[in-house]
């Protein structure tokens, strides 16, 4: 079975995110970058699937991103991914999900695939689009926000739970399929020391747009960022105080009703 896991290099969840001096992106100095948190669930699920199916199953990571993405690709290889494709091209500096999906579709088609795992969204731009556009480009079904994944014994279909408001949808999907992963699907493993040693010898095939048969970034020029805005400051917090807690809470209840008008 040919398993693809998609990776994105993103700022750490704990990073302080500030707008850069040119006002056209974020300040990257001093920011730690990690594998997109949700992509880790995809890597783990891909590795588990390979372990379960066995045979000549293989897990290949595919990452589109700047040169620095090598670091997160090595981390995935250290977790147990077999090899990787790194799509890296200056023309992909600020790509839209449509551009990335088209580039990924080409690279993944060249690799061959039965199942593709990825995160439900990048925790940087939070678009949650690439996987569904990719599904459309590859003409395969998609299951987003998976919390449970199982493969039928005859390997013909996947049975999943997908998180929706107030519950889960149980979904049956035929293979090949792309699955985006929600937190809770699994507990991603850490890279082991032998894993880290082995990762150094694993192959990362670097490809630019020309290698993938594109003269320029595909599907670009459909939208433009006008400006970046900081998080608005919170208002002044009214601290409700009294000698006895009970009096402070009574005052809070009164304020919620009479001033904030939410009760």
């Amino acid at each position: 079975m040919k398993i693809i896991v998609l990776l994105k290099r993103v700022p750490d969840t704990e990073a302080k995110i500030l707008i850069n001096q040119d006002g056209n992106g974020i300040r990257e100095d001093g920011v730690k970058f990690i594998i997109n948190t949700y992509d880790e669930y995809g890597i783990e699920e891909g590795l588990r699937l390979k372990e379960k199916v066995g045979g000549d199953s293989k897990v290949t990571a595919v990452c589109a991103g700047p040169e620095e993405s090598t670091e997160v690709i090595r981390t995935a290889l250290a977790m147990g991914v077999d090899d990787a494709v790194h799509i890296c091209d200056p023309a992909l500096a600020k790509p839209s999900p449509f551009t990335i999906a088209e580039v990924l579709a080409k690279a993944i088609s060249e690799e061959g695939f039965d199942i593709i795992f990825c995160g439900k969204q990048g925790i940087d731009d939070d678009m949650a689009q690439t996987q569904s556009i990719l599904a459309e480009k590859l003409d395969i079904p998609q299951v987003n926000n998976a919390t449970v994944f199982e493969l039928a014994d005859d390997l013909s279909k996947a049975v999943l739970n997908r998180r929706i408001e107030g519950g889960d949808e149980k979904v049956e999907a035929s293979l090949p399929v792309i699955i985006s992963c929600e937190k809770g699907l699994n507990d991603p493993r850490y890279a082991s020391l032998p894993g880290i040693m082995k990762a150094k010898k694993k192959e990362i095939r670097v490809k630019n747009l020309a290698d993938l048969g594109f003269n320029e970034a595909p599907s670009s020029g459909r939208s433009r960022v006008l400006k970046w805005l900081p998080m608005p400051k919170g208002g002044e917090c009214k601290m409700v105080e009294a000698e006895e807690t009970v009096d402070a809470v009574k005052e809070l209840a009164r304020l919620l009703r009479e001033e904030a008008k939410v009760v």
Binding site: P11, T13, I17, I19, I26, I123, D124, D125, D126, G221, R222, S223, R224, V225, L226, K227, W228, L229, P230, M231
Partner: peptide
């Protein structure tokens, strides 16, 4: 970035 920043976009 989960609301740490906002962007304004326009279609082309």
């Amino acid at each position: 970035y989960s609301g740490k920043l906002f962007v304004e976009l326009t279609p082309e």
